[in-house]
């Protein structure tokens, strides 16, 4: 009784901050979750190597920023707006290309040969985990297992303050937080539009719903699958760049937990459903931050996974349920 009322008193003043931080973190989960959900929707495969698709993206944008002349700890001042836009553009493009390329490579090397041999589903899962470990370890070797610093490109500046009054402290919202959440929404919107409006999107949905009939209509399944991996990789690249802006250092093993969280977000929202990935990501970020505020920071991951278990007990298909193919029905 007292425990909970004490906790509540700890939490309440920070409620606004926790919500803002949670949504920001959730937006990153959402962007990564899009990749899990896309691939699952088409192949019913959980691409556990997607966490490393994200990982290589984080390195790609840091490398490109270094080429342009902005490395961590080089004493450069925070660049001016024009330069920031250039850096963000270059970083996002580099990360998306590298992440997208890696995703397609994983599909070609790790999954396509198994598909041709009609391997059982379990084998795909083991291969996925194998690919994940292999990439993460490769990055570890290349970086001597040392963390890399991320240059400070965007100084977080408060844009506005949410002041809910009562005993809740006013919560500042920074440019970075706004940018991250908006990027996730824009990326989801672009993917959703692509899937529902373009010819290739129609093909992806067709394979997701009924791959045999899709083939009878002239859809090249292999090409659709590659495209699906590519799209998920592009979103992961965007996530990687945003993550860099938010975080000071990265290392070869950051993919694992983030990937797991993003996968959780996808399942939470309803795996196979794009909107579910967005909702699931935001909800997960929100809930785990509130949980951390309530129980203490060290419980953040416990809260995240307990929430997953509870939601799935009552709604096994996730919050929005539904699959990629049936997203519009």
């Amino acid at each position: 009784m007292n425990y909970f009322s004490d906790r509540w008193h700890d939490l309440l003043p920070n409620l606004g901050d926790l919500v803002v931080a949670g949504l920001t973190q959730g937006a990153i989960y959402a962007l990564i979750a899009l990749g899990y959900t896309l691939v699952y929707g088409v192949l019913q495969l959980i691409n556990f190597a997607h966490s490393e698709v994200f990982l290589v993206g984080t390195y790609a944008s840091i490398i490109v920023w270094g080429w342009i002349g902005y490395a961590a700890g080089d004493g450069n001042p925070v660049p001016a707006l024009g330069t920031v836009i250039l850096l963000l553009g270059a970083g996002t493009i580099a990360a998306s290309l590298v992440s997208g390329g890696t995703a397609v490579l994983i599909e070609r090397v790790a999954y396509a040969p198994l598909r041709r041999k009609n391997a059982p589903r379990l084998i795909f899962l083991i291969t996925a985990i194998g690919a994940s470990v292999a990439i993460s370890e490769l990055v570890g070797e290349l970086t001597n297992r040392r963390p890399w610093g991320v240059p400070l490109l965007v100084e977080p500046k408060t844009q506005f303050v949410i002041d809910p009054g009562m005993s809740i402290n006013p919560a500042p919202v920074t440019n970075l937080q706004i940018g991250i959440v908006l990027s996730a929404i824009v990326m989801w919107f672009l993917l959703d539009t692509f899937l529902n409006r373009s010819r290739f999107g129609l093909g992806i949905r067709a394979v997701a719903q009924n791959e045999d009939t899709a083939a009878l209509m002239g859809v090249n399944k292999d090409r659709v699958i590659m495209l699906t991996f590519l799209l998920g990789g592009l979103a992961a690249g965007v996530a990687a760049t945003l993550y860099n802006l938010k975080i000071g250092t990265i290392s070869f093993n950051i993919g694992f937990l983030l990937g797991l969280k993003a996968f959780t977000a996808a399942v939470l929202g309803g795996i196979g459903n794009l909107r579910g990935a967005l909702v699931g990501g935001l909800v997960l970020g929100l809930v785990e931050n509130l949980g951390a505020g309530f129980f203490g920071n060290k419980w953040i991951d416990v809260v995240a996974f307990v929430i997953l278990v509870i939601v799935l007990m009552f709604r096994p298909t996730g919050i929005l349920g539904d699959s990629l193919g049936r997203a519009r029905a």
Partner: peptide, 29 residues
């Protein structure tokens, strides 16, 4: 399909989540 063979399969194979018109566009993929 490009060569000129198209099938209406057993069980019809309708894409149940797509609209009727989208289904028809699938034929013209």
């Amino acid at each position: 399909v490009v060569a000129g063979i198209c099938q209406a399969p057993e069980g019809r194979g309708i894409f149940s989540g797509m609209t009727v018109q989208e289904n028809l566009f699938m034929g013209a993929y």
